[in-house]
């Protein structure tokens, strides 16, 4: 317990320190990767512990972002903290409702239901353009957090940008909470249901209930990431609800090694930096390179980044854990 707190504090200190020295561009990229890893951490719970592959996290990401955008535009909420809480609440509620439906399915059917859901959200965002702004998206003004700190800008010490500071703080808190969730009874139930669903039922564990809770938690994380994305990016468009965004999240989770939240944390940083600089240097071939990385990864390190680190760190002989 204390160990977890220290681990999170060290990560927080590193990120904070980094904020003092890094350029604003790097800070923006890092913020974005932290948001991606928030979503991917939800997928670690869902894929790594529960064995359910969701291609719908992009939809929850978008719901979080658009909750902020629409609440700002139509209801004039000017407090970032209220927008944040409302955005997360709305997303969590919707993911619970979708979970009620999706938790009854498994494997391919589950993946298809989540894809279908994200396509519905995408279509709604595009077609109801008189409300959502269609493919043009919405602009998010820099509202203030607690009435003092604007969600974007440079009002803090040295080169630290506000959005970076807000995002790393929330990220660390979520990391700490997720560590608890991973050691909770529910996580054991999730693994039990994943390994042997029928046995879990005969021990009185309801798989549907377990999956609904896990799905809601993953949606909750995607919601937080989405609302913060709206603040960070200043502009949101429906493309974040498209299934390719969800695909990116799944890819990051696989890249990180599906059971390690620190693995996906590193993976999302690697992925976004790789993608950004590849676009800079090879505007047309970045997908080719990404595809090549996936291929290499599946062939050489099926356990992802965390697997590689584990191998190097602990040594080959002790490496038996799967």
């Amino acid at each position: 317990m204390v160990k977890t707190a220290y681990k999170c504090l060290i990560i927080y200190a590193c990120l904070l320190l980094f904020g003092f020295i890094a350029t604003r561009h790097i800070q923006h990229l890092l913020s974005l990767s932290l948001l991606y890893s928030l979503v991917a951490i939800g997928l670690v719970i869902l894929i790594g512990y529960g064995g359910l592959v969701s291609f719908g996290q992009g939809a929850f990401y978008a719901i979080g972002a658009y909750s902020v955008g629409l609440l700002l535009k139509y209801y004039g909420f000017q407090n970032a903290e209220i927008l944040l809480v409302l955005g997360v609440l709305i997303t969590t509620l919707i993911s619970f409702l979708i979970g009620l439906l999706a938790a009854r399915t498994r494997k391919l059917a589950f993946a298809m239901i989540t894809v279908a859901f994200s396509m519905i959200i995408y279509t709604l965002l595009v077609k109801f353009y008189h409300i959502t702004g269609g493919t043009d998206g919405l602009r998010i003004p820099a509202v203030k957090l607690f009435g003092i700190l604007p969600v974007r800008g440079r009002d803090l010490f040295m080169s630290m940008s506000n959005e970076y500071f807000i995002i790393i703080t929330i990220f660390t808190i979520i990391l700490y909470i997720t560590e608890h969730v991973i050691n909770s009874p529910l996580s054991y139930a999730l693994r039990a249901v994943k390994d042997a669903e029928l046995k879990a039922v005969s021990l009185g564990i309801s798989p549907t209930r377990v999956y609904i809770l896990a799905f809601t938690y993953a949606g909750f994380l995607a919601g937080i990431a989405g609302t913060l994305y709206a603040f960070l990016n200043a502009h949101i468009d429906p493309l974040i609800a498209f299934w390719t965004t969800s695909g990116e999240f799944v890819f990051i989770t696989i890249l990180g090694g599906i059971t390690s939240i620190y693995g996906v944390f590193l993976a999302s940083i690697l992925y976004l930096f790789l993608k950004t600089y590849l676009i800079v240097y090879t505007a047309y071939y970045w997908q080719f390179v990404i595809g090549f990385v996936i291929l290499l990864l599946i062939l050489l390190a099926p356990k992802g980044l965390s697997g590689i680190i584990f191998k190097v760190y602990i040594g080959r002989k002790v490496f038996r854990k799967s």
Partner: peptide
């Protein structure tokens, strides 16, 4: 059919937590 990713102890604890109706708690260690 058993829980391949758990140890014997963890499997038994999962079962006992299920009996005590604590299995759905996700915030407590």
């Amino acid at each position: 059919q058993l829980f391949e990713s758990l140890t014997v102890k963890e499997a038994l604890i999962t079962s006992i937590l299920s009996r005590n109706k604590k299995i759905y708690n996700m915030w407590k260690d």
